[in-house]
Design a protein around this nucleic acid. Structure first.
Lengths: 371, 371
DNA sequence: ATCGTATTTGAGACCGGTCTCACATGTCAA
DNA sequence: TTGACATGTGAGACCGGTCTCAAATACGAT
C-alpha cells in the first residue's frame, strides 16, 4: 500500500506528523541516536514503514560531515588487474559500511586531477588513487594537506607522505630476471606497457610510474650482478597502444643481437608477444623464453603455460581500503607503505637460450660471464 | 598561499564576505546562474581562488534535487565482462557530466536489494542494474514506481517495463549450436556458470537469469530443428564455483554417450574446459569441439584458438548509460529494449566429431539425423 | 509530600548551497 | 521630468536531516 507517488519523497517531518511526534523525536528514532521511549519508537517505526520512508543520505551527510563513501581512482577498470583490485576495495569498504565512487583516469594525470576535484566536491571521506604520474602530483599533495585520508594503490609518489599499498616490483623483476639468467640467458628484454613517446629506454626521465622504475632497476640489478653489460639496451616502453606492441616486439626480435628472453610488464603485453611470435613463426620456449607480470587465469592454459609473477591484486585493493577506513575512523599513526609479496610461478615458458649467430657484443659478454 | 587549514572547509559565505558581497551574489557567480555584473564576478572569482573555495556538491544536490550521479550495480566487477561494461558506462556517464557509484551484488538478489536501497538513499539520479534474479524483483519495481530512471543491463526482467540493453543471446546460442551441427555434431552440451544447486538441468524453474534461459532456448531450438532429440540432457548448470566446474565437465565427458561439443557460457567456463581436458588427456578439436561466449583477448592465443561469440560488452555499458542519461534529462517516451548484435568468430576449436563407440541412444539419433 | 536526578520530548539553530522575491539602480522613450 | 522596464543585488526561506538546549515528565529516595 505504499503507493509512493513519484512526486516528492517522504521526509522525516512527514513521518513525525503521521506518528504524532516532533521532527526531532522521529529523527532520533530513525537515525538511531539519542533516546526515545519504546512506545514512541514503535509508533515512529510504524509510521515510517507505512509511508515508505527512506532517509536522505545527502542531508544526513551534510550535517554530520561524513558521507560513508570513499572515492577510488584507477587507471583503467577495463583492465582485469584493476578489476580485481576494485573488487578487493569494494569488499573491504562494504564490510566497513562504506560505499565506493569509482573514477577512471585513463592513466592521464589531468583526468586524475579532475577526478580528485569531483570526488572531493562530493565530500568523500577518503580517497584511493593509483597515481598516473610521479611528476604531476600537486593535486595529491593538496588532498593530503586538506587532511582527507589518501591511500596510494599499486604505486608510490616520492615525497608524498601518505599510506600506500604496493607489491615489491623491484624484487619481483629481479627474481624473474635471475630465473632467466639461471636458464642461461644473457640477453633479456623488459617490455613495458607504460606510456612513452620513445619506445627505446634512454633513462629514468622517461618513466613516470614508480612501479616501472622499480622493475627496470630490478632487471638491471640482476643483470649487472650476473656480469651482463648494458642490460638497458633491451628495455622497451609504450607497448600499450594497439599495433605499437607488435611493432616494438617484432623489431626487437628481428634486430641484430636479438634478446633470447622477454619479461612482459603485464598480460596484455604477454599476449602481444604470443601473437607476434606466432606471426614470426617462432615458438616458446625454443626460440624465446617468456615471463609475464600478473597471474591471469588464462596464462595457465596457453601452450606452453606461461611462467608468471603472481601479484596479490585483490589483497592490494582490500588492504588499501582497510587502511583507508582505519584512517577515516581516526587512527593517527605515521603513514606507512605496505609492501605485499609476489610469487614467481614457474610454468613452461622458460627454456635454454637458442644458439644464435655470433654478434658484435658477444665477446664482451662471454668475457664478463666469467666474473 | 591557499594554506587550507585542515579544519573547516571554505564555504560560499566565506567567499562572499571576503569579496564584500552577499552570499546570494557569490552563489550566483560560483554556481553560474542568475546574473551578476562583470566587476562583481571578477571580485568573487578572485576571492574564491584566493581562499581555495570548492563547492560542496552535497549541499548543492540537496537543494537542486539532482546529484549528477548514477548508481551501477553489477554482478561482479572482478569479472572482465563487467569490467568492460563498467568502462563503457563510466565513459558515457562522464561525457555527460555524471559520476558513477559502483556496487557489487555478487549475483545475490538480497545484496542487490540492499545496494538499491543505499544508492537510492544517496539520491542517485538513476540506476543501471544487472538483475541477479528474474524472481526477486520487488526492489526493481519499487525503483520504477518511485519514478527514478532505471536501465537494465545485459539481462531483462519479464513484467518490468523499463529500458534495457542486452545482446541477442537466443540467436547467438542458436548460431553457435548450428555451427556445431554443421560440423557434424549431434551431442552438444551447454555448460552455464549460472548459480544452481543441481548441476543437471531439469526445467526453466531452475533458471533465474533471462540470458541463461534465452541461451538454453537457442541451443534447444537449433538442436530440435536439426532433428536432435532431447538436447536438454547435455545442459549443465552451476559451473561457476571453483572445483565445481571441473567436476561437472569431467563427469559429463566421461559418462556414457558423452557430448562431442561444448558451448561454454563464458570465459571462465571455457578455461575450466581447457584445464579438465588437459587433465583427461583429451584435445581440441580432435576429441571435443568448443565454442565460448565472450571474446576475451586470450581466446585467440590458446592452442587451438577458441571460436567465440563476441559480445559488444563495452557498447552494452556505454549505451545503457547513454539511455539512462537521456531519461534523467527527461525524455519520456516508452521504455524500450535495445538488442545489440553478437558475432560468431570462427577460429580453430571446431572440428568433426570423433568416432565414438555406439551407445544406447545412438540409434534414435542417427535415425533422426535424416530428418 | 518533597526534592533530586534521570529520562523523554520539542523548539529551533545549523550544515552549505539554491532560489524567490523585493528593492535599488540604470537606461531609454515619451 | 517621468514612467516603463531591464538589470543587479541582498535578505531570508528552504532542502532534510542532526544536534543543542531547555522544558516536561517520571522515578526513587528521604
Amino acid at each position: 500500500m505504499k503507493r509512493t507517488t513519484s512526486k516528492r519523497l517522504v521526509t522525516i517531518s512527514d513521518v513525525a506528523q503521521s506518528a504524532g511526534v516532533s521532527k526531532a523525536t522521529a529523527a532520533r528514532v530513525l537515525g538511531s541516536y539519542g533516546t526515545a521511549s519504546p512506545v514512541v519508537k514503535e509508533k515512529v517505526r510504524e509510521a515510517a514503514r507505512k509511508l515508505g520512508y527512506q532517509a536522505n543520505e545527502l542531508a544526513r551527510s551534510m550535517t554530520t560531515g561524513k558521507s560513508k563513501t570513499i572515492g577510488v581512482i584507477v587507471g583503467d577498470i577495463e583492465n582485469p588487474y584493476f578489476g580485481q583490485a576494485v573488487r578487493g576495495i569494494s569488499d573491504a569498504a562494504h564490510a566497513a559500511g562504506f560505499d565506493v565512487i569509482l573514477s577512471n583516469s585513463g592513466e592521464d594525470a589531468a583526468k586524475e586531477k579532475a577526478a580528485v576535484r569531483v570526488l572531493l566536491g562530493k565530500r568523500v571521506d577518503g580517497l584511493i588513487v593509483t597515481p598516473a604520474s610521479v611528476y604531476e602530483t600537486q593535486h595529491l599533495h593538496e588532498v593530503q594537506r586538506s587532511g582527507r585520508p589518501l591511500v596510494l594503490l599499486d604505486r608510490t609518489v616520492p615525497g608524498l607522505a601518505v599510506d600506500a599499498v604496493v607489491t615489491d616490483d623491484r624484487q619481483a623483476a629481479e627474481a624473474a630476471t635471475r630465473a632467466l639468467i639461471e636458464a642461461g640467458h644473457r640477453r633479456i628484454a623488459y617490455i613495458s606497457a607504460t606510456e612513452s613517446d620513445d619506445p627505446i629506454y634512454r633513462g629514468p626521465h622517461q618513466i613516470n610510474l614508480s612501479t616501472v622504475m622499480e622493475r627496470i632497476e630490478g632487471v638491471v640489478a640482476a643483470s649487472r650482478s650476473a656480469g651482463i653489460e648494458h642490460p638497458e639496451r633491451y628495455i622497451r616502453l609504450g607497448a600499450n597502444r594497439r599495433g605499437e606492441g607488435d611493432k616494438i616486439i617484432s623489431e626487437l626480435l628481428q634486430g641484430a643481437d636479438r634478446p633470447t628472453a622477454i619479461l612482459a610488464s603485464d598480460n596484455v603485453v604477454a599476449l602481444e608477444v604470443f601473437k607476434t611470435l606466432r606471426r614470426l613463426g617462432m615458438s616458446i620456449p625454443q626460440d624465446l623464453s617468456l615471463i609475464a607480470f600478473h597471474d591471469a587465469d588464462w596464462t595457465s592454459v596457453t601452450s606452453p603455460p606461461i611462467t608468471v609473477i603472481a601479484q596479490p591484486v585483490y589483497d592490494l585493493g582490500f588492504e588499501s581500503a582497510r587502511i583507508l577506513v582505519r584512517r577515516i575512523t581516526g587512527i593517527g599513526d605515521a603513514p606507512r607503505c605496505r609492501v605485499l609479496a609476489t610469487t614467481l610461478i614457474k610454468r613452461q615458458s622458460i627454456g635454454a637460450p637458442p644458439e644464435l649467430p655470433e654478434s658484435r657484443t658477444v665477446l664482451q659478454n662471454t668475457a664478463a660471464k666469467i666474473g
